[in-house]
Design a protein around this nucleic acid. Structure first.
Lengths: 204, 204, 204, 204
DNA sequence: CATGAATGAGGGTTCATTCAT
DNA sequence: AATGAATGAACCCTCATTCAT
């Protein structure tokens, strides 16, 4: 996964492993868990099928692992963007910006998390649930703090956080539908920030 | 699908067809496109597997058809709820209420639309896109009218509509996760209405 | 299995099922459990591979079933041959004769039981053990009765029975090695009878 | 194989080769030819998989070689035990004793010869045949000499020898089924000796 | 000598689809 | 109309074997 490309671990031995994981993220993101075959993945990585099973125990384990890792990465990316900011407007702006940047730069990350492999893989449904829960909680923490500071009115911050999370996803998915979204990124980020802040009752 | 109970396909001769379609919605919604087998569907409908292929050309066609029909039904349900209302707050309240009611009473409808077989079924990606577009447009029309009436400030109503659509979905999915969501419905509807109205800049 | 050919159940519907079971006995007997592939079996039965899984849950289940059925059949065949006889010499003669006849007429039955699928299939090792135990017990019962009648001297009848069972198998396997064993059958049966009777101390 | 501990293959350089052969006997004996994987063997010998193919051309060749060597060892062990004895009773007693001792001390030797990969390995069927033939011939030679000395009555010594060989195997396998067979060894040896001598018509 | 990453044929099994009854 | 036995392509995965280091 190129978003991990900053890691120093670049041992030759793992080049195939890395290639397969990158390929797997793409293939899973594009087709979803079921439609993606192991042959698709090894084909994209240009290795033999046996190589897959040398590095990974099976398709499901890899998918779950990739899903978790991708989810963590996305959550941390947003979290870090938000971390240094003091006020809710700054936090929202930074978080939204980070999310959009990630989606535009690594669309597979977002697609993997949303296209999903829901159904039939029991361990997956709960992983997805867990991811949504964590994403929601991230927003919720910010809102709770803002409520405590009287920056925004009292409200059911869980609902608000869910609303924000879902709204962001939808706008971002819309953004990814156009071939070259870069020109629209800033606009989307600004609009999204405004929408979020208004939704939670932040005075202009 | 109980929401189709008044259609013409109710002729006795088509009872098996209807049974299979109802079963298919449930099975697809529960397992997703790939994990749902034709045998699951005919098993749930209590007919033979050959019967499936007498009424439907194949699994994919049925799924796409069901997806379209379900999407139309959801859109019309919301549209009708909104239709008689004059002001944006009334419209939002009615639309949100209708959406939530539908989700709680017919969770399979929502699940079918969201669980998806994206990627898996090539022709489905665009169907899904089309559904989201229509759902967004539905909100967008209301917002555009409100902007024209100076009820809410000028804004990119497409972005706003996407935000609303995504936010609604997320809250509704959260609602469906609990076993007996009925007690929480009113609360969710109220919160959702508030969030939507605030997000688009409607003064309290 | 042709040794069940006397059954009246000859429904057309089960012709493929029967063909596969017959083929399976042959293939398993010839190659053993592991080397026999499902494709071998369906090839021998001239049906498609999917047909196998329409009738049987999986390869292992079929093998265990066939093994049990074959073992029961062999045990009952010997048991019945022995049943009407009063004296030990008559019983031994009849039992040995029956066993040899079966082996010559249905070599696959014997081969299936002896070539086996030992190793790796846990449920199989005990099945084989159980079969040997039952075969031994069959002889042991005869010997115990003979000891009680003072027809033969007191002895560890379990050891004697094991000795007999193993000795019979070896002679029979030797018999099956020649292409046309029929001419040697009578001789083998006589020798075997003498050996068994002598071994247990039956006076000439 | 501990029974090979005094051979020339003991040179330091071949320690890995030896380790693999010892491991292979155990693994093959325990799982049978097919279920035993090359990885099982190298794992048990604690060497890399490539090392296997440096010393042995392939799995099948090793198995056949091990089978032959094991068969020879067993035959020689019995042969040597019998060699110094003059009378049939002494010979039988010594041979049976040697066989049982070997089975109890080196169960893998016996299991390897009996668990088999019959059918699975084409070249093995004849190896097994050859082993049984030699084992039978060993007994047959003793019987022929005894017949010539009028120690036992004239008989088809081939049949008698087969009977003995099979009978021994069965009792020995029965012995190996119990976890700690040592206490039963003497009893089994005595019974077996008696059974063999009686079977061939040796007067008490 | 020794290693273990890499290969791919092949095995068990599933499931959409067909067709004779 | 309706059935369900039959089909076979395709899936996931294993494992004997090779070869660059």
């Amino acid at each position: 996964m190129s978003y991990r490309s900053s890691e120093k671990t670049r041992r030759k031995k793992d080049s195939k492993r890395t290639a397969m994981m990158q390929a797997a993220v793409q293939v899973f993101a594009e087709k979803g868990y079921h439609a993606a075959t192991v042959r698709d993945i090894v084909g994209a990585a240009d290795v033999a099928i046996g190589t897959f099973y040398f590095y990974f125990p099976d398709k499901e384990t890899l998918f779950v692992y990739l899903y978790e890792e991708t989810a963590d990465f996305l959550l941390q990316t947003i979290q870090q963007a938000v971390a240094g900011k003091q006020t809710l407007p700054q936090q929202v702006k930074a978080g939204v910006q980070a999310y959009i940047n990630l989606a535009v730069y690594e669309p597979a990350v977002v697609n993997l998390l949303l296209v999903g492999g829901i159904g039939a893989v029991p361990s997956l449904a709960e992983k997805r649930l867990e991811f949504r829960r964590q994403l929601t909680r991230l927003w919720q923490r910010l809102l709770d703090a803002a409520v405590a500071d009287d920056a925004i009115p009292a409200q059911d911050t869980r609902h608000s956080a869910e609303f924000i999370a879902g709204g962001c996803d939808e706008i971002i998915l819309g953004l990814l539908e156009v071939p070259n979204p870069e020109p629209f990124v800033q606009n989307a980020a600004d609009d999204l920030t405004t929408l979020v802040l208004r939704a939670v009752g932040m005075p202009d």
